[in-house]
Structure formats: structure tokens, C-alpha cells
């Protein structure tokens, strides 16, 4: 075991990690930040997406020790300072961008990464960027709408059907 230190959601943290300790294990089990989910554990589903030094990564496919000294942001870091939902989170609520919610932390994190790189994406660009994030409930339509809304685009109302 070695000591690993990093900044998570703006706060300096440290903990013990083995070489094989994954970043997601360090966050969930070491730091109690269970908002980041483990879905497939094979780097397919994206539920574990977090930002490392400002870039989206799958935290189940990175070792905690490789994030030594990094700035890490998880879903817990996406809320506003007063605890209210951040813009993307609020848009997911407003546009029903979730059903069971399991994929949502990863969806919000990948959406934030997209909007940082491309603040006004087309629908096609949004769908393309979600390639590594799997949702088994929504069929993606409302997730795409939520991201369009978070980008400030006018979005057709969600049909009550």
C-alpha cells in the first residue's frame, strides 16, 4: 500500500492504495463518494465517468496511483456552491433525462466534458459524444434534450406520453 493524494472536487484528499486500486474504488470506498457508479466494470458503459485534470475518463479503467496529484471532479462536484443542482443536473431533471438514474452521474460528467469542448453541439455531435455512455432506460432522447437545454438551445417540450 502506498499513500495517494489528489484534489477531489476542490478538496485535498489522500488515502492508501494498492497498485491495482482503481480510481473509482479510491473515490467510492476510500472517500465515500458513491455518486460515481460502477456499471459494467469493463470500460463500456461510462457510469463511472469522472474528470481528471479537466478531461472525462472512465474511473474503472484508471489506477488511483496514476491520478496522484491530479484535479478530479466527480458528480458530487457538479452541484452549485449552495447545494442546488448545477445547470446540467437541473436540465436532466427538467427534461426527464433519467429513469432509474444509474447511468446519470456518468451522463452528466460526459455532458459537461462535451459542453466544455463544444459549447453549442448539434444533436448528432451530442449523440456521437455519448458513444461510451450506456443508458438502458431512456432511449437517449431525453438525455439529448437535457444536454441541448443545458447548452442553452431551445428544446421541444417533453411530450407527456
Amino acid at each position: 500500500m502506498t499513500k495517494v493524494s489528489m484534489t477531489v472536487n476542490g478538496k485535498a484528499v489522500s488515502g492508501e492504495a494498492e497498485g491495482r486500486t482503481l480510481l473509482v474504488e479510491f473515490l467510492r470506498e476510500g472517500q465515500g463518494l458513491t455518486g460515481t457508479h460502477v456499471g459494467c466494470d469493463t470500460s463500456q458503459c461510462g457510469a463511472c465517468t469522472v474528470h481528471v485534470n479537466g478531461e472525462a475518463v472512465k474511473s474503472c479503467t484508471m489506477f488511483a496511483a496514476d491520478a496522484e496529484g491530479a484535479e478530479v471532479t466527480t458528480i458530487e462536484g457538479m452541484a452549485n456552491a449552495d447545494g442546488s443542482l448545477g445547470t446540467i443536473q437541473q436540465a436532466f431533471q427538467d427534461y426527464h433525462g433519467l429513469q432509474c438514474g444509474f447511468c446519470t452521474p456518468g451522463m452528466v460528467m460526459i455532458a459537461a466534458d462535451l459542453l466544455k469542448n463544444n459549447p453549442n453541439p448539434t444533436e448528432h455531435e451530442i449523440r456521437d459524444y455519448l458513444e461510451g455512455n450506456i443508458c438502458r432506460c431512456t432511449g437517449y432522447h431525453n438525455i439529448v434534450k437535457a444536454i441541448q437545454a443545458a447548452a442553452g438551445q431551445s428544446v421541444p417540450a417533453v411530450a407527456a406520453e
Partner: peptide, 9 residues
């Protein structure tokens, strides 16, 4: 290649 998160690593 892969998806955006994979391309970042």
C-alpha cells in the same frame, strides 16, 4: 477510436 473517455486515456 473507442469513445471520448477512452480517447482521453
Amino acid at each position: 477510436i473507442g469513445d471520448p473517455s477512452v480517447r482521453n486515456r
